[in-house]
Each structure stands twice: as structure tokens, then as C-alpha cells.
Write a protein that binds this DNA or RNA. Sequence first.
DNA 1: TCCTAGCTTAGACTAGGTCTAAGTCAAGAT
DNA 2: ATCTTGACTTAGACCTAGTCTAAGCTAGGA
Lengths: 139, 139
Amino acid sequence: MSDLVTRLRRHNWRITPQRRVIAETLEGSHVHFTAEQILERAVERMPELSRATVYNTLNEMVALGEVLELTFDGRSKRYDPNADHEHHHLICEGCGLMKDVHAMADPVDWLPGDERHGFTVTRASIAYRGLCPECQAAS
Amino acid sequence: MSDLVTRLRRHNWRITPQRRVIAETLEGSHVHFTAEQILERAVERMPELSRATVYNTLNEMVALGEVLELTFDGRSKRYDPNADHEHHHLICEGCGLMKDVHAMADPVDWLPGDERHGFTVTRASIAYRGLCPECQAAS
DNA sequence: TCCTAGCTTAGACTAGGTCTAAGTCAAGAT
DNA sequence: ATCTTGACTTAGACCTAGTCTAAGCTAGGA
């Protein structure tokens, strides 16, 4: 039983076979997939699954606050099932691979009051960029 | 004379009338525009300017390292002419307004070696999110 | 069983961005 | 001064990611 499915069920959200496959595909990966990659993998388990259902379902999970939507490459969104723990992202500039990482400090503490321009700052996320081992070897 | 134009010229990059208009439009704004917004404003000064030239020029300026490409909303890229000073961004979750801010420390120092997964980490940027004064008042 | 609301589907559509082929321009060679 | 060459610009076709629509399906309650 997927932990994400458990969390989703708490919102009284109907867990249909399609939604279960999508949630499990999302959670089963340790990297962050795009919607197309999730569709591709989910279709292996449920061949008649449609693109629209994948997009609808991902958007609903984001709206419920159980999945994070990430956009770092400007091309496609990526989905992170780990919405309940504070973390940041490490992104490969070569291949787009994205991993979760944890920093030793909370960046909100490092933004002085006079740099806040009257905003209420509620959260901060760090995008670390570099090259993954494979892309280092390739270059 | 635009400072961005000066920086671009140092790369032996030809400053054509189109490129000058685009660079000046980009630098003249204190918020970060999308490519379409830049086109819209630049066309007021040079009506025959084409969409392709705006996209080409923005991409070239990014490749030269003089302009930053920002993607926070997952819909369109925004361009930041201030690539030569290390800074982060403060984003309003209500209206999308984006401002430059400066933190008191470099976040790269906060990522322990065992969290780097073999990546070479070259830079890090922080996205601070919250509500701007106008959106606080509206809610 | 029938109704109903919600879910899923295929495929049309949209927005943002890229590519292509043709034309224009400017600087150096003649 | 004109020619050549390579870089730049253009209009519009094309591509990709994502959304919308209309129709069909499904499960649970009356």
C-alpha cells in the first residue's frame, strides 16, 4: 500500500484504479518525473490509461497539497510526491535529473527584513544546479 | 547607454538595432518580463520586429551569461538582465510579482557533501515565496 | 433496476517556443 | 565602388506540453 494513496484517501478522494496506478508510479520513483514520463510508465501497467487522466490526476493531487509541482527547466513540470517534508532540489544541467536534498539551514532565516519589501515570506526553496556523475563523465 | 548593451558588446556580439531595442526593453523594466511581454513593448519602438528575433536574442543573451532565464510558474520563462550580481528571487503567490533579493549567506555552503550525490554543484538560487503587500491587503 | 454524479476517454485545441527557408544587411576583399 | 560572404532578421510552419470538450462508462443510492 502506497503511503501517498493513504494520504490521498484521507481527503475523501476516490481511489480509482487509474488514480492508484498514477499515485504508485509517482511514489515508486526516487527521481522526479514529468507528466509524460509518468504516463509512459503507468501505461505499462494499464495500457488504456489516457493522457488526460494523468494530467487531471496530477493536478488534483497538487490541489490537495499532497504532491508538489516543480518547474525548473521551463519545459515541463515535474511532480514530487514527498510534499510533507521540507526539502530542496539538486538539478543536473546536462540531463535534467532532479533529486531531493536537505540543507543545513533554513533560507528564510537568511533573508534580512529590509530585503522583504513588505512581503510575508512563508517558505523558501533552493535549487542547486550542477552536473550529475553521468554528465560529468560524458563531457 | 544601457549597461547591458555595454556588457554584451564585450563579447564581440553585434549590436544590431533589433538587439539594442530588446536589450533596452529588458533592462528598462524593474520586474521580470516574459518573452511575449518584451516583444509587446519592443514592438512599440520597432513595429517590424519579429517574434523569432526576440526569442533568438533572448536565448543568445542567456547563452552569453549576461541574462538569466527564470521559470517559476511553469508557463513561460522570464528574463532577468541582472546576471552579474548574485541574487535570489521573492515571488508573490497571489499575483506572480517577482523581485530580486539578496541573502546574507551562500546556500551552496549549506549543502553537506553527503547530500551532493556525486554532483558538481556550481550554483544555487533561492525562491522565496509569500504575499506582496497588495495581495495581503486584498485577502 | 434506474438515476445521478463523478470519472475516464479520444481527440481537438491552445500557448509558448523553435525551426526553416528566404531575404536583408554590413564589413572586408577586389 | 562593387562584390562576396557570413551573420542577422523575417514570416510563418511546426513542435511540445498541457487543457478543454463532448461523449461514454461506472459505482453507489433511491
